[in-house]
Computed example of a mutant assay.
Amino acid sequence: MPSLTIALFVSLFVCFANVNASPKFEELFQPYWAADHFSFDGEAVNMKLDNFSGAGFSSKSKYMFGKVNVQIKLVQGDSAGTVTAFYMSSEGAKHHEFDFEFLGNTTGEPYIVQTNVYVNGVGNREQRLNLWFDPTKDFHSYSILWNQRQVVFLVDETPIRVHTNLEHKGIPYPKDQAMGVYSSIWNADDWATQGGRVKTDWSHAPFVASYRGFEIDGCECPVTTASSDNAKRCANSGGWWDEPVLSELNVHQSHQLIWVRANHMIYDYCSDTARFPTVPLECEHHRH
């Protein structure tokens, strides 16, 4: 019995690689907001916003490093004022966060994807782009790859943003807090569409976002474990995400990112001299 007790004790304090080829929503996630605004259609999960409430789901576990992926079909038609978000976040005032935010549009206008990175509770690193397809017509894949060297945002496996570890330049990097995985849909018509000039038209409600293809392949961290222990064990877990080949984009991915930035980016905080008269240090790096 003592050895069994020790084994159970140790298992609570070990981060382990959790590989799921095609897990169902119920295995990885749970509604955390407005469970009555969910519906299920085979492998797909539908989440709606109406004039009573938005909705959201969260992962049952927290993770440190790895890759999360979901396929989303965004709100069709006039979705002005709405935001559908897919993101990773830790907790507390000094939290880390990686955001995909899909900003609703008026019919015929392109959907805008805003990404953001929070480190130690500080964000203000927004980038916005128009997608090269209509994300309301079919499901498309949205992913976040996170390791000790970089955070990569991907759309259909095409990188659209990279946040690089620049600790050697004195810039904090998010690698010490386990994160949950979340998605939500809500009304943000005070800012989401054309800076808040276009409001939500509730005659088009409910606004529905659909999800499938839920995958989390990363270092899973028991909630009972201290953050410092999670960081230490996940940093030394030998997971696939720490392979040297994943420490930076490969040549093909680099070319893809250049193409995305040249053809689809419409806002980059690094170029916003009104907000940042002094160019942020990480921006100087990314320009070279």
Rank of each mutant, 00 (worst) to 15 (best):
W33K: 10
A34Q: 07
A35L: 02
A35K: 15
H37M: 06
D41N: 12
D41T: 11
G42L: 00
E43P: 12
N46G: 09
L49R: 02
S53P: 04
G54M: 01
F57Y: 08
S59L: 07
S59F: 07
S61E: 15
M64Y: 13
F65C: 04
V70W: 00
K73R: 14
D78W: 12
D78R: 03
D78T: 12
T82W: 05
T82I: 08
T82C: 06
T84V: 11
A85L: 13
F86E: 05
S90A: 02
S90V: 01
E91D: 14
E91Y: 13
K94F: 05
K94M: 10
H95R: 13
D99W: 02
D99E: 03
F100K: 02
E101R: 00
F102P: 01
F102Q: 07
G104Y: 10
G108D: 06
G108W: 11
E109D: 15
E109F: 11
P110T: 04
Y111R: 15
Y111I: 15
Y111G: 12
T115I: 14
N116G: 06
N116C: 02
V122G: 07
R125Q: 10
R125H: 02
E126Q: 08
Q127V: 14
L129P: 05
N130C: 13
L131E: 04
W132E: 00
T136L: 15
K137S: 14
S141H: 03
S141Y: 04
Y142C: 07
S143F: 09
L145T: 11
W146F: 06
N147S: 07
V151Q: 05
V152N: 09
V152R: 02
L154S: 08
D156I: 03
H163S: 14
T164Q: 15
N165Y: 00
L166M: 10
E167Y: 08
H168P: 09
K169H: 12
I171R: 02
P172A: 06
P172H: 01
K175V: 10
D176Q: 08
A178G: 12
